[in-house]
Write a protein that binds this DNA or RNA. Structure first.
Lengths: 96, 96
DNA sequence: GCTATCTTTATCGAAAAAGGTAAGCTGGCG
DNA sequence: CGCCAGCTTACCTTTTTCGATAAAGATAGC
């Protein structure tokens, strides 16, 4: 449960990074120099095999000239507090 | 340069998390149970002393019922590819 | 086939995240 | 005052990121 959704998130973010990088005609090595993150590390992130830190994500976003949020915008998942109804996913219930 | 902007990013995200959590009347322990992240770890993140991983951020966002992007939306930094002009900040130049 | 470029994978060492626990620290309340 | 709830900080252990490097795919062109 936990792992599944998270892997999708990482694969998604990685895919978005790769798309943005490719759109700018940058190679992994070029992005590595811009970000200070090694090319192998970038490869792992882009292929969803690594769980990057927030600052790592930010450095990539900066190098690509996009907002960090752009890279992780979980398209569909964005539940958006539209239906913040009382029937939310979980309400702590027993835990409170 | 690196450290300064990054600390601000972490402090900012942490502040946003704390605001959101407080707005929902949740304690650190309650959020800890919802996210599976320990309360001490959450405290460090909220005070900007820790650089969370992407999945960690996602779990917090999920528990708070907000989009992950909401928590890191770097207000001003959001350059938005409006002026993606050729006169960008840096063009790799010597590095390519 | 060979070569160059890009990417992926593997290994190693250092640094850091994260859980757990425990110890402080603050404020409110009886 | 003592007590409690909430948050912070410190220590420890395990896991993971990350850089560096090297090696191994994968294409494309000579």
């Amino acid at each position: 449960m936990v792992d599944d959704a998270e892997k999708k998130l990482l694969a998604d973010a990685g895919h978005r990074i790769r798309e943005t990088r490719a759109a700018q005609g940058l190679s992994l090595e070029q992005l590595a120099r811009l970000t200070g993150i090694s090319a192998p590390a970038l490869s792992l992130i882009e292929t969803g095999k690594r769980d990057p830190r927030l600052t790592t994500l930010k450095r990539i976003a900066d190098a690509l000239r996009v907002a960090p949020a752009t890279l992780i915008a979980d398209g569909p998942g964005t539940v958006e507090p539209s239906a913040s109804s009382s029937a939310g996913g979980y309400d702590l219930g027993e835990y409170q």
